[in-house]
Amino acid sequence: MTFMKLLASAALVAGMATAAFAESHGKTKVGFVYVGPVGDGGWTYEHNEGRLAVEEEFGDKVETVFVESVAEGPDSERVMTQMALDGADLIFTTSFGYMDPTINVAAKFPDVKFEHATGYKRADNVSTYSARFYEGRAIQGHIAGKMTESNIVGYIGSYPIPEVIRGINSAFIHARKVNPDVQFKIVWAYTWFDPAKEADAAKVLIEQGADVILQHTDSTAPQAAAQEAGNVVTFGQASDMAQFAPFPRVSSIIDDWAPYYIARTKAVMDGTWESKDTWDGIGAGMVGIGEITDAVPADVKDEALALKASIADGSYHPFTGPLKKQDGSDFLAEGETADDGTLAGMNFYVEGIEGDIPQ
């Protein structure tokens, strides 16, 4: 009798294990590697919102996992490797500095699909994706140029990579269009997320006379520093940062990754995934413009929304000539627009921006 019970128990355990395996095997496992914490209020927060959207869209057909605050470099390679070993079918690596680690790990796991954000290296099982943040910077620049009273706009840069340089140039071009006297002061924080460093950068810029602060870093610390200073205008970065509206945050760039994450997960699920480059902007909905608050004069708000509409429908390109480079050499002739290759590798300031790009 005892022997029979043991057999029955063993059969039950085996059956449960088989069922559990079948359930997990039937799910598509999607991993996310984050450079900051999910609570950063900016870049990583929005990527995590995309992950949650995948769960909501596919329910028990998917399993998502994530690791936050992963340093760029060897740490990220270890995290990606472990995700692949743990059975991930698709891995999103969400920071520029993950590019080479993504390529390295993908070569070791040819059956796993990888998606790298903001990079440019692809492989048979590696796609790249990014948003045209510079389109949103154009709108911010327009508002900044109109709202500054000191004619000094501060810009907190993360790292001097093309994505950030494009943003600085785009904002400056459009600030100068509406205010020929505007100057940009740039502080490089050399971080994506470090609230203390970002707050210090904002304070330095404010001390230098900036009454508008733009940022390409991920925390809300510059917003808080501006709020404390008083009459300093800011813009949300990567997410709405609406807790600082209606002032100092008067608008924002919002990264909406959810549709892309859903589409690429579905492609893995139905076997149609293929390696490709995606670079979408306002028109495709990957870049959103947060509410422009009433702290912005009505006419400036109308102009900004008209600029947004013209970028969205393709009738206007933020990099349209005539434009010169910082050294005075020609960049774009009258009516000429920058091609994607030039934008993707941008390593120069446009005419009028002071200072050097760090090497």
Rank of each mutant, 00 (worst) to 15 (best):
D327V: 08
G352H: 07
A123G: 12
Q326M: 03
Y129H: 11
K325V: 07
S9W: 11
P259F: 02
D194Y: 04
I139G: 11
L305Y: 14
R51S: 02
A175Q: 00
G285N: 09
K324F: 10
I173W: 00
V33M: 11
S130C: 14
Y260T: 13
A242T: 07
A258T: 08
V33W: 01
I139A: 05
A196V: 15
E334D: 15
M99N: 07
G341V: 10
I186P: 04
A189R: 01
I289H: 06
A267L: 02
A226Q: 03
G285S: 12
V250L: 04
T93Q: 02
V250C: 08
D270W: 00
V70D: 01
A10M: 13
K185A: 11
S130E: 04
T148V: 05
T342Q: 07
I292W: 02
D218M: 04
G167H: 01
I103S: 03
V126W: 00
G281C: 12
V54Y: 01
F114H: 04
D218S: 09
A238C: 12
L305S: 06
Y134N: 08
Y349C: 00
G328M: 11
D240L: 11
E63F: 08
V67N: 09
S24D: 15
P37C: 12
N231F: 05
G36T: 15
I357K: 06
G209H: 02
I152P: 00
S310E: 14
Y159H: 14
K61A: 07
H116A: 15
V105C: 00
P297R: 06
A175V: 04
A210F: 01
G290F: 01
E334G: 02
P358E: 04
T234R: 00
E23R: 12
L305H: 09
S158W: 01
G41F: 07
E23I: 15
T148F: 01
V70W: 00
N48V: 06
S252M: 08
S24R: 15
G145Q: 02
M286P: 00
R51A: 06
H317M: 12
A304I: 05
P246N: 00
G15P: 10
G283N: 07
A202Q: 10
L6S: 09
A258I: 05
I282W: 00
K121D: 14
K108R: 13
E46G: 06
I186V: 15
S251D: 06
H174Y: 09
F3P: 03
Y260L: 15
A245G: 11
K276M: 10
A17C: 07
V187N: 14
S130M: 12
E68V: 02
H25M: 13
G26C: 08
M286C: 04
D299T: 10
F21W: 14
K27V: 03
A106K: 01
K324I: 06
H174I: 09
V178D: 13
A201S: 15
G15L: 13
I156D: 01
F92V: 07
T118C: 08
L343Q: 12
L52V: 05
N48R: 05
A144T: 05
A131M: 12
K5C: 10
I311Y: 04
A171F: 08
Y316N: 03
T2D: 14
T265P: 00
Q140P: 03
G59I: 06
P195C: 01
I357S: 02
P322A: 05
R137H: 07
T94V: 09
K325R: 13
K276N: 10
A312E: 15
F331Y: 15
